[in-house]
């Protein structure tokens, strides 16, 4: 049975697109057939992070409006088998997404893939609500800081009321992905601790992704971190999260990068 997963957060810049790409690659590597769909119409990014920006011909809007077939718009990843991308349109806005069109596209994707990962835009407007509407599972991406946590709480409320599952009286499965986590700063009290975030949001924890330069480097390279440096700390955290997502029990740890002697001596350079 195909599963529709929405990666959402409310707040912008917390790592939705990065996480969508990293989880997509990790799931595809584990043998699942995966489609990642960019719902951020007008501000598309997922194609860049996936390194497919030069191969986009048709996009989600074309398929929603019936101008292109789904098969024409899906971009197969060259590096990972079983992974496809449905890009957003950069020239249109979110009003071009229609409820019926999205329903039809999700229905078609369900027939072809095991996992459909919807990268939600920030905010709580049309784009975000349409991205979450058909979801069976939600990954709520949160940074350990108060504004992000409050926005996530708002999104969880919407997931419980404004999705197809909620309207049928069912509960949507929700997971918390804590990103940009810095154990040193959390220990110093500069950041919210994991327990505090979990206490406020009260949804199960899917993983803790350590803050790392590797993530930024990977995004700029157009290769998700789980592909470009699979042994790095954030990549290992994403792989663990993926295994939890498909139902495996994995002990919760915050992977760390082993720092060289000089680095430990001088701390981190300003990125």
């Amino acid at each position: 049975m195909a599963k529709v997963l929405v990666v959402t957060s409310g707040k912008g810049g917390v790592g939705k697109t990065t996480s969508t790409a990293a989880l997509g690659v990790a799931l595809a590597k584990s043998g699942q057939k995966v489609a990642v769909v960019d719902f951020d119409v007008g501000l598309r990014n997922l194609d860049l992070v996936m390194g497919a920006e030069r191969r986009v011909v048709f996009d989600l809007i074309n398929v929603v409006q019936g101008d292109a077939k789904l098969a024409q718009a899906l971009i197969r990843d060259k590096r990972v088998e079983n992974l496809s991308l449905l890009a957003a349109s950069q020239t249109r806005d979110k009003d071009a997404l229609t409820q019926e069109g999205v329903t039809r596209v999700i229905g078609e994707l369900r027939e072809k893939f095991d996992w459909i990962i919807c990268d939600s835009p920030a905010g709580i407007e049309r784009g975000a609500t349409l991205a979450m509407y058909h979801a069976d599972v939600a990954v709520v991406v949160t940074n350990p800081e108060v504004s992000s946590v409050r926005d996530s709480d708002r999104i969880i409320g919407l997931l419980d009321s404004k999705t197809a599952k909620a309207e049928k009286g069912e509960r949507i499965e929700k997971h918390l992905l804590l990103t940009r986590y810095d154990p040193v700063r959390a220990e110093r009290g500069d950041m919210l601790k994991t327990e505090d975030v979990l206490e406020i949001l009260s949804i199960p924890l899917l993983g803790i992704i350590p803050d790392s330069e590797e993530v930024l480097k990977a995004s700029n390279l157009g290769a998700p971190v789980t592909l470009s440096s699979p042994t790095s700390a954030p990549a290992r955290a994403y792989f663990d999260a993926t295994r939890r997502l498909i139902g495996e029990t994995v002990a919760m740890t915050v992977p760390t990068d082993k720092k060289g002697f000089m680095e430990r001596l001088f701390g981190r350079r300003v990125a």
Partner: peptide
């Protein structure tokens, strides 16, 4: 019996 979320 559910938490009241932000915005609700």
């Amino acid at each position: 019996t559910r938490p009241v979320r932000s915005g609700q």
